[in-house]
Design a protein around this nucleic acid. Structure first.
Length: 797
RNA sequence: GCCGAGGUGGCGAAACCGGCAAACGCGGGAGACUUAAAAUCUCCUAGUCGCAAGACUAUGCGGGUUCAAGUCCCGCCCUCGGUACCA
């Protein structure tokens, strides 16, 4: 009896897989394809997180099972390496982000390989590789070319002390996380991408995909399509003659400063509209400035609102704030009544028209506001939509919550936006032959104190000739958001398999796309189910509309894993000191034990706290498997065993359970079923080889190293991943008896072991023979007997 | 606030379509083996009352539907994810 030497055996098989290129996806191939995808990691300086292992193992299990089922599996890996943490590290240490990224990805690669994931390492990608971002830039230029990229003024977080723009995370709670000072809002010109033009397509696409329902709902709600109406409320200015301003707009298209255009999803409630509310950023306020009698109050209020984020504005719950615009009123176009106009930050600029008609009788928020400021709440009858629109001259419109994508960052560590600004020609695309526009080396990674990216200081790099007219021009110095590179990476893996340096043009890869896409199963975190998923669906849909990719929806199926929290039940973080380093666990218990524990620890889709003792259970389980596999079967090779019907039945039940549970990601119960099987084997003197062999096969996707070794011990020459997935025999899983539950008035009073298929009359007879049942029934009369076949009998007395 | 998910023993959890609540594992207890310890193996382990047979109470809280509710319905409370520049 020798102990299982995980260190030696795991290394042995990892070497062999690498040498034999066991997990390389082939193209072209006669086999059916299977494309498994995990969200490629951000290579942070902290090293691999145990959470990565959870998601990677789950999809590894599915990928390995699919190979055994005869598929040509693509399960790729790469690095989503642009982003803030690396940049901030570079700012602090002066080390180039390129160098830091190289170091971090080397660590991640070694760690991932030590866990035996069946990745196709030949297709490894890195979003910060200029050959990779050449494509990201090329695709951005397609958006530009099609008029979907445009410039607009957008509010950013600005620290007036540090003189830099801040990410939302760096400005949490309205405080700069560098200096602790207050953060302001500042308007800045940014590149935008018109994702809103795809709102309906993105909604429709959801109908055809197999996402977990909450992911679909989140996407649906985020896009937030709502049908309503725009209705214009004429303005009355107290200081002027009222009559002259009492008019309905003749043209709805031209913006006018004597009307407030509101958006409502409930035009039918118009008779109850008792005031109008503008968002603090509404431009009418500026235009009517000299007519507002309490201008100082209004300006104070607007300044205070500017300091809050949208979330802060609305989350202060029932404490609504606002200021009336004194001297200005509006006319309800349906009732012709003069009603007050307020400014309040519960109305958001970005949604609808930035102005609402308040109907406190029908809307909770309006009611709270009205109650607080003693505004009238009237109960007027509803009218039909048609009537409302007719009497107000309003028009039906569709609005979306979805806003356009802010695509600029004033940062170094991102893809340079490949545009050049020329005084004569305005914005001009960098010609395809000049891509990629590489990130130049800079001395400082800190944004400049005008809020521009550090690239702006590279005058040599910035000043170029206009590609169109040859005149003096300047490069765009903004870079792209981290979302850019991850929006199309599932295509990059396919390209990378055909061309190591991702040669353009994209049309070369259409056949490979046709074979491999869509991704058959994409797993990721719930934290990505809105933004990343939506951005990449949009990006792919855009390429599809250009005829460059063959499928409209990139991901056929989407599932989500739960976060792994620290032992203390909170998110793992360096500062809390609750981070688990997988290296030590792999060394002490082995990759298979760790993989198994992470799959066994709880339901895959739920957040769970790390239990440092939990791995002991799966490690003991594997040790038992090893002992059985090396003593109870192999030493008795040539012997003929009497069939053990009970164990064979359990084997087939286990194959069924494990096969099904993998598909529903119920890995914890699959492992529990395998434990039950192994516990049963422990009690046996000998186990027939044919039974044991099948068990090793179903264990293989979970614990591939030990399974390979035991497979070899059984006398097999080929790797276990070349074998077929075992099928259960439906005839062999059937039990012949079951425990009948006997209830009286719904309470369990007895049990009886009876054959499957026992009819009601027999069950009744058997039940009433039991003294423990009888005493609850004696001297009472039956009202009813409920009989559930092969399960229970319930006497109502 | 809004959108989404969750709440079951000392702990992680299981429970198909409404049908024995607590499978499997961790921890704990007792025993075997051992000079001893570790490892391993066997048994016990929701709570209360009871000598016992057993009875009662239990799935965040309060109601409801049902022969029967962890599961379905209504109303709350708490925790987590997202909230558009963390990824």
């Amino acid at each position: 009896m020798s102990k299982y030497d995980h260190q030696k055996i795991e290394k042995k098989w990892q070497k062999r897989w690498e040498k034999e290129k066991s997990f390389i996806a082939e193209f072209p191939s006669e086999k059916p394809k299977w494309y498994s995808l995990i969200e490629f990691p951000y290579p942070s300086g902290d090293g691999l997180h145990v959470g990565h292992i959870r998601s990677n193992t789950a999809i590894d299990i599915i990928s390995r099972k699919r190979r055994m089922e005869g598929y040509n599996v693509l399960y790729p890996i790469g690095w989503d390496a642009f982003g803030l943490p690396t940049e901030n590290y570079a700012i602090k240490t002066g080390l180039a982000p390129q160098v830091v990224t190289k170091k971090n990805t080397d660590i991640f690669r070694r760690q991932l390989k030590s866990l035996g994931f069946s990745f196709d390492w030949d297709r490894e990608i890195n979003t910060t590789d200029p050959e990779y971002y050449k494509w990201t830039q090329w695709m951005f230029l397609k958006f530009f070319e099609k008029g979907l990229a445009y410039k607009a003024k957008v509010a950013i977080n600005w620290c007036p002390k540090d003189k830099i723009g801040l990410a939302n995370e760096e400005a949490a709670g309205g405080v700069c996380d560098r200096c602790g000072g207050p953060v302001e809002k500042r308007m800045k010109e940014q590149w935008m991408i018109k994702i809103t033009a795809y709102a309906d397509k993105l909604l429709e696409g959801l109908k055809d995909v197999d996402y977990i329902p909450q992911a679909k709902i989140q996407q649906d709600n985020w896009i937030g399509r709502s049908e309503g109406a725009e209705i214009e409320f004429p303005i009355v200015i107290a200081s002027e003659a009222k009559q002259s301003h009492f008019k309905i707009a003749s043209s709805l298209s031209a913006p006018r400063n004597d009307l407030i255009n509101v958006f409502t999803t409930r035009p039918d409630t118009i008779l109850g509209a008792t005031y109008v509310v503008l968002s603090p950023e509404h431009k009418l306020i500026g235009e009517l400035e000299n007519r507002i009698e309490n201008l100082a109050d209004v300006k104070n209020y607007i300044a205070a609102a500017a300091k809050k984020s949208d979330i802060e504005r609305t989350e202060e719950g029932k404490q609504k704030t606002g200021v009336e615009l004194k001297g200005i009123t509006a006319i309800n176009p349906a009732t012709k009544e003069e009603i007050p106009v307020w400014v309040a930050d519960y109305v958001l600029t970005g949604y609808g028209t930035g102005a609402i008609m308040a109907v406190p009788q029908h809307d909770q928020r309006d009611r709270e506001f009205a109650e607080k400021f003693k505004l009238p709440i009237v109960d007027k009858p509803l009218v039909s939509w048609e009537e409302a629109l007719k009497v107000t001259d309003g028009k039906k419109t569709v609005k979306y919550k979805l806003r356009d994508w802010v695509f600029s960052r004033q940062r170094y560590w991102g893809e340079p936006i490949p545009l050049i600004h020329c005084e004569q020609c305005n914005w001009v695309a960098v010609p395809e032959k000049d891509l990629p526009v590489k990130l130049p080396k800079v001395a400082k990674y800190q944004p400049t104190d005008t809020g521009e990216s550090p690239l702006a200081a590279m005058t040599k790099w910035v000043n170029v000739k206009c590609p169109r007219c040859g005149g003096p021009a300047k490069r765009e110095t903004d870079t792209m958001p981290n979302w850019a590179g991850s929006s199309w990476y599932f295509l990059a893996y396919i390209i990378r398999g055909e061309s190591a340096n991702y040669q353009l043009p994209i049309t070369n890869y259409f056949d490979a796309f046709k074979y491999f896409t869509p991704v058959d199963w994409y797993n990721g975190g719930m934290e990505h189910t809105v933004l990343h998923l939506l951005y990449s669906r949009f990006w792919n849909r855009f390429l599809y509309d250009l005829g460059l990719v063959p499928v409209a929806e990139p991901y056929k199926k989407r599932t989500s894993h739960g976060l792994i929290l620290g032992e203390d039940g909170v998110k793992m973080s360096k500062s809390r000191g609750n981070v688990i380093n997988p290296d030590g666990l792999v060394k002490e218990f082995g990759a298979d034990s760790l993989r198994l524990y992470e799959m066994f620890m709880g339901p895959f889709d739920q957040a769970i706290a790390w239990d440092p003792r939990g791995i002991l259970g799966t490690s003991r389980f594997l040790e038992r498997v090893w002992q059985i596999g090396t003593t109870k079967t192999t030493s008795l090779h040539s012997q003929v065993f009497k069939d053990d019907v009970g164990l064979e039945r359990l084997l087939h039940q286990t194959i069924k359970k494990v096969s099904e549970d993998i598909e529903t990601m119920s890995f914890n119960t699959a492992i529990s079923a395998m434990m039950i099987f192994v516990n049963e084997c422990v009690a046996k003197q000998t186990i027939s080889q044919s039974v044991w062999q099948k068990f090793v096969l179903i264990l293989a996707p979970f614990a591939p190293h030990i399974a390979e070794e035991l497979w070899e011990v059984l006398g097999n020459k080929n790797s276990i991943h070349l074998e077929s997935w075992p099928k259960f025999d439906p005839n062999k899983i059937v039990e012949d008896s079951f425990e009948l539950i006997i209830q009286v008035n719904g309470k369990m009073r007895g049990k009886a072991n009876v054959p499957i298929g026992t009819p009601q009359d027999e069950a009744e007879k058997l039940a009433l023979e039991q003294s423990s049942v009888k005493k609850w029934i004696e001297q009472k009369t039956f009202k009813k007997v409920i009989f559930v076949k092969d399960r229970l009998i319930n006497f109502i007395v």
